[in-house]
Design a protein around this nucleic acid. Sequence first.
DNA 1: TATTGTTATACTCTATAACTATA
DNA 2: TATAGTTATAGAGTATAACAATA
Lengths: 166, 166
Amino acid sequence: MTETAQYEELMRQLGAVGVVRRQLDRSLPDGCSSGTAVVLGLLDRGGEMRIGRLAELLAVDMSVTSRHVAHLAELGWVDRSPDPSDRRSRILRLTPEGRARLVELSESTAQLLAQGLCDWSADDVRQLTRLLSRLRAGFADLCPEEEMPAGRPAEPVFARTPSFTM
Amino acid sequence: MTETAQYEELMRQLGAVGVVRRQLDRSLPDGCSSGTAVVLGLLDRGGEMRIGRLAELLAVDMSVTSRHVAHLAELGWVDRSPDPSDRRSRILRLTPEGRARLVELSESTAQLLAQGLCDWSADDVRQLTRLLSRLRAGFADLCPEEEMPAGRPAEPVFARTPSFTM
DNA sequence: TATTGTTATACTCTATAACTATA
DNA sequence: TATAGTTATAGAGTATAACAATA
């Protein structure tokens, strides 16, 4: 198989990820998408941060992030308090309600993933995660982005990944 | 790291695939998306087929497939000829123009992937492709789907993958 | 003048449902 | 009556650009 063919196949499989994501999304409660869960997860892992920082971590435009956060704020899952050091910005924080929802969403997703990956070893899962992380990093280099901060203020719902960050 | 945390991390990385896809899409010429390229690739690998079959392979609704194909037909990249055995259906075929475009698209994508994955070994690429294929298969089982046919009529632009099919 | 964030608009991809033609 | 495909409509996600407030 030529190199180009291998890349073509990879591209096809990357597209297939959308299929899995849509299926996971369908299983989530009410107005929750996997996108919602990822935002909550980043706020949980990264602690309080501003919109710009969140947009960097999500690797989407700030305008997109702004709308997602506005939605989560309406739901009462994210709190936006004024940033005393820069009045243009607001500081985002997971509310207790948001944290509770994150646990719920994570468990729901984990259950479905466990079902779809029932014949996977823990190492398979780790390996796929690591390769995807590397993939993302390779393309982030083409369009630079920062890393997650080393320290974080609040207790995360789940343990952080030490070897690679989103 | 708990199992749930590992799944949560996997979900996050699956979301990050969208970032890579969008970046690949931006590099494609005029009205081409990676979706377009995948349709052309499937028609190249699978030979002539009907809309329903293509929708299965893409794992999206037939209505979605219908519109994509209509677009490609307008561009002259896909030909829709009447199916003599069932006048409700039409048979889809890659046109020479479509095949030429596929080569172009594949090379363009391969070039960008090669750039983003410059520090990857060929085996890394294969492994990621294989794991994604397994991931998709695991979820396809929850919502069953068929495999690609063994034989195919036309010369494919690229070699087929023997061990796993989309 | 530059930066942070928000809003308006548009585009893509997707699904559901109604519809046509044929089996 | 059921099936293959198309079209209409709606929803989610994203990007660009114009804008407001502040640095």
